[in-house]
Design a protein around this nucleic acid. Structure first.
Lengths: 266, 266
DNA sequence: CGTGACATTGAACCGCGTCAACCTCGGTGG
DNA sequence: CCACCGAGGTTGACGCGGTTCAATGTCACG
């Protein structure tokens, strides 16, 4: 594994904003601002109930009266590509529900390199370790423009005490993380590089329209697959030459799913 | 990845005992037998409270009166080396607390190969996906003579409803699984083979006495590290030649922790 | 138009997979 | 008691695949 060129090593345990952490904040409810205004009445109840992704989000199973017990601000925070939701080692004060976009969870290695251990999609929850009072165990970085809801840990913990529905949601989400971690190991870190790239592409297919997917930097792809940037680039380029991938825009491709499945199987 | 020689592919979704599943059952309490006797009064309350590893086990935080609500048999089941606690796809009816020994969680790959995704040590809990009504997601196999407590899922689920202490234990255990899965990826599936073997050895050090560890078959070690049996064997042999490992018994070694740490860092 | 970030490509090297031989050891049966 | 056998560990030879280092291409942006 090569040392990161721009890497200043694993981020320290502070929670100061890094220079590049340009965050687009759109506060969720009343006059509250991120990190302040604990007492402010919050009108997020309505918004949560009406949330477009609620059926797949952390609050999916909550009932109307459950929301009445939320007395801390839930902020909608949007992140530009490349900015961090939080850093490894930061004291975890909140979980983030991904509303749209894509987030990578990064682990930094002893040698300064990095490895992406998971991807979070809309409906997923980031930073659940904070619910146990732990520091964040990864750095979470937006791979595309990403919208989140930042939910203070006390809200979730209090709801979990109150209702077994929240309880069940949490367990399901933890289990999902384990599943995803295991799948990551067996499908993205096993077999030759070409098969790994193929499996990653299949994983990135847009659920809806079938055979389209949006890629990101070759370096990130390499960090997911445990191979170098060059190898990734070579393989993607080859897929393009052989028609398995068809560029339709900047980092947008149409895939020959059939062929990819065959390659992934080897 | 090479195809498994003895592999008959991923085990099917049945829960029938395989021919080689020689299980040493020592039933926990009254006259109950595994899988039967739901009504039998169970005297495990005493045994759980007196359990030697309770402070690190699933029931760690429970109080005396919590145990009064256990009305299903908790069996002590011991497994010989190589036998399965359960198979992937089996409908999960219970979790297993490991009392002594070592258990591997195996994922079977599309090509018939296998990958070990986690190790369970005394105090760890296997098969928690069963609590969510899911089928087992791995095959769990004892790497050494292993003792377990088989706890029916209803017991845990009912306790979790009753007491937030059980609730918290579950969340912590799920979180631990995620952590271990992430560590597995970053430390055992990253870097060159020699570093991986070194990290595995460091992971296997007996907590207590410092520099001793017990290895297992080279094939299993390879399946943990994502390398072949031959590579694993070569590296272990080299470590022995250079004095980093010192054989003290069958698959027992004393390690030069210093040297291993250096090699692991590369 | 210069500049920097990123993708691509080339060439050389070498780590590890692959295939195969051989060894050790424990068990089994004559 | 010994010959035989099979499983697992070790070692060698060879070649491929992926890393490494370096050069060039491409595009967005100031």
């Amino acid at each position: 594994m090569r040392a990161e060129p721009a890497g200043q090593g694993p981020p320290g345990p502070t929670s100061l904003l890094r220079p590049h952490d340009r965050i687009l904040t759109r506060v969720g409810g009343s006059s509250s601002v991120r990190g302040k205004a604990i007492e402010a009445a919050w009108r997020g109840q309505v918004e949560c109930l009406a949330c477009g992704i609620r059926e797949s989000a952390l609050f999916a199973d909550l009932q109307e009266d459950d929301f009445a017990h939320i007395h801390l601000p839930i902020d909608e925070i949007d992140f530009e590509t490349g900015t961090a939701l939080y850093h490894v080692g930061d004291p975890g004060q909140a979980v983030f529900t991904v509303r749209f976009g894509l987030v990578k969870l990064v682990s930094y290695l002893a040698d300064g390199g990095q490895r992406i251990v998971r991807l979070l999609r809309p409906g997923d929850t980031a930073g659940m370790e904070s619910l146990l009072g732990l520091n964040y165990e990864h750095t979470a970085i937006a791979l595309r423009p990403t919208g989140t809801c930042r939910i203070p840990r006390e809200i979730v913990n209090r709801l979990a005490e109150r209702t077994p529905r929240m309880h069940a949601q949490l367990m399901q989400r933890w289990q999902r993380s384990v599943q995803q971690a295991d799948a990551w190991l067996t499908s993205l870190s096993t077999g030759n590089a070409k098969a790994r790239v193929a499996r990653l592409l299949l994983l990135l297919l847009d659920g809806t329209d079938g055979s389209d997917c949006t890629l990101f930097g070759r370096e990130d792809m390499g960090a997911m697959l445990g191979v170098t940037t060059e190898t990734t680039s070579r393989i993607v380029a080859e897929f393009r030459r052989t028609g398995i991938l068809n560029e339709t825009g900047p980092n947008r491709y149409t895939c020959d799913v059939e062929a990819l499945t065959r390659i992934a199987g080897s």
